Simulated scan of single mutants.
Amino acid sequence: MPRPGLSVLRGVRRALGTAARIYLTGCALLLGWAIMTASDESMAAVVPLFATAPSSVVLLFLLPEADTTFLLSILLGALVNAMIIGWCARALRRGSTPDTAS
Rank of each mutant, 00 (worst) to 15 (best):
W87N: 05
W87Y: 10
L76D: 09
G11D: 11
P4N: 01
V58C: 06
A53Y: 06
M43C: 00
A82Q: 09
F61S: 14
R3L: 13
I85L: 11
R14I: 00
D67Q: 11
L16V: 02
G86P: 02
P64R: 12
P4H: 01
A53T: 09
A34D: 04
V46S: 02
M36V: 15
A28H: 03
L29C: 10
S55G: 08
P48Y: 01
R94F: 01
T68H: 11
W33K: 04
V57L: 15
L72R: 15
V8A: 06
L49Y: 03
L63G: 08
L24G: 07
S73W: 05
L31G: 11
D99P: 04
R21Y: 00
E65L: 11
D40W: 07
P54Q: 02
L29S: 06
T97C: 02
T100N: 06
T97F: 03
D99W: 11
M83F: 14
L59E: 04
A91Y: 03
R21Q: 11
L30Q: 02
T68C: 05
I22Y: 08
R10W: 05
T52M: 01
T69D: 12
G26F: 07
N81T: 12
A101R: 14
P4T: 01
R10A: 13
F50V: 14
A53R: 02
L30W: 05
V47G: 00
L71E: 14
L92Q: 12
V46L: 12
P64Y: 03
L29P: 05
N81V: 12
M43R: 09
C88S: 08
A66P: 04
V57Q: 07
I84D: 07
